[in-house]
Design a protein around this nucleic acid. Sequence first.
DNA 1: CCCCCAATATCGGATAACCAATATTAAAGG
DNA 2: CCTTTAATATTGGTTATCCGATATTGGGGG
Lengths: 100, 100
Amino acid sequence: MKCCDMKGFLSYLILWCLKKRKMNGTEIAGELEKRKGTKPSPGTIYPALKELKGAGLVGCDARKVYFLTEKGKRELEGACGFFSRMFYDAKEMFGCACGK
Amino acid sequence: MKCCDMKGFLSYLILWCLKKRKMNGTEIAGELEKRKGTKPSPGTIYPALKELKGAGLVGCDARKVYFLTEKGKRELEGACGFFSRMFYDAKEMFGCACGK
DNA sequence: CCCCCAATATCGGATAACCAATATTAAAGG
DNA sequence: CCTTTAATATTGGTTATCCGATATTGGGGG
């Protein structure tokens, strides 16, 4: 088990980051590096963005600046609810996972 | 993207659940069902437990009741710190992901 | 206008998570 | 002790995530 090398987060994290502000691919990669500790490679980030765009969760303008669509916002909120339920006892367990 | 079918959580979630109390495989599966919405199959849960035991993160007694080892506790805390950093802005983003 | 560099895109492959199906073990009751 | 039923274990295969390497695009300076 490698808890801090967790897979399956990438798309979700991208949505999370885009909720704060519009970003291009490089900026997103940098933001993910800050959060995860490792910078996703181009071969990771761009296919992910393409997939998200194909799913209608993000859009991008002519300058390749990506932003959350309404559908993406709903998806993100659904995912947050999912996390919320999954770790409903986060507070009593630690003070953790709550960004405080 | 399938945010609510996220992979790579299983081992982590098992540790999380075992932090609360000792459990056998079936109980763990039930607890995961409550949290994730889907019950992991035997072919999922037992290999995961075996791996965790092999890594020294959990132990089990003669009755196959699993518990967190000290190493497992440290691992879990490390993972929690990881999450904490990853979603450091959880509060400002929503009120979410904090089990409240 | 052309070159150059950074950003973006694509592709193949490696890895690992997970499940379905099946086999084995253990427990409880008659 | 035997049977039956639930719990545990194993195996093989499917799928998806991610990365490395490599192409392509686009924008700014000369």
